[in-house]
Simulated scan of single mutants.
Amino acid sequence: MAVKNDKKIIQLSRRTVYQNRWMQVNEDKVLFPSGVEGIYGVIDKPPFAIIIPVHEDGRIQMVQQFRYPVGKRCWELPQGAWEDNPDSDPELLARGELAEETGFRAKRMDKIGQMFPAGGLLNQLCHIFLAQELSAGEPQREATESDMETAAFGLDEIMAMFEKGAMVDGTSMAALGYWQMKEGRLKS
């Protein structure tokens, strides 16, 4: 049963404390529904797409790269944003990121959902796509992705990577879980 609560936190002022090409960090002075004033840190980032590329045999194409914030190489689903074109069509973004990171092109690209990966501090929207009928090509990676690798895995292998800490990307796990529930493979 849904609970309706129309009480909102009201923004009183905003101060940008940091900004670069990829993000803007703001400190907002806010008024809580209780009447108490406080602050909220909010990170603005452009929308991104995460892609679940499924081969005909059911394996999922993933990428591995060094993730500086966690200090290790990690497997994850292909994903990304176009900082220079934040209002781009989500499907074009998904197709572009899939080809860029893996080299694969999808004959079928279906948007299956969307989410806010960290709604408590980040306003970035994630579009979830299922890519099927894949054809191989050469990746067109950016210079910052030159260490990226790609390989295909079964769902059991992906679960093992998650359990061993080789896959720590919460967005990838959420997208895979959502897809499995949507397909009826997991009970909600």
Rank of each mutant, 00 (worst) to 15 (best):
D169E: 15
A175S: 08
L122D: 11
L176I: 00
M115L: 10
F153T: 03
R15T: 12
E145W: 14
M181R: 08
G113S: 10
D28A: 06
R105M: 09
I60S: 03
H127C: 02
D28W: 14
A94N: 00
E142G: 12
M109F: 04
V70Y: 09
Y178C: 09
P139E: 01
H55Q: 15
Q11K: 13
R108C: 11
A136S: 11
V54D: 05
K4Q: 06
A81Y: 12
D28E: 14
Q61N: 14
G184T: 06
P117D: 00
P86T: 02
K8R: 11
G80L: 07
W82K: 06
E138P: 07
Q79H: 14
K182C: 03
P46I: 08
G58H: 06
P117Q: 05
E37R: 07
R59S: 09
L92S: 07
S88I: 11
Q114V: 07
F162Q: 15
E133D: 12
A94D: 01
N20M: 00
L155H: 05
Q132W: 02
G103W: 06
E149A: 06
P139G: 05
A160S: 13
P78L: 07
L176E: 05
D147W: 00
E101A: 00
Q124H: 02
S88A: 15
E37M: 01
L77V: 02
Q132L: 10
D84S: 12
Q64L: 04
K182A: 14
G103F: 12
Q140I: 05
L130Q: 08
D6W: 03
E56S: 15
D87H: 08
I50Y: 04
G58V: 05
L122S: 11
V36M: 14
G113L: 04
Q140G: 11
I158F: 01
S172R: 08
G58Y: 00
Q61I: 12
L125K: 14
G177H: 04
L121I: 06
M181N: 09
G177N: 03
P46L: 08
Q140K: 12
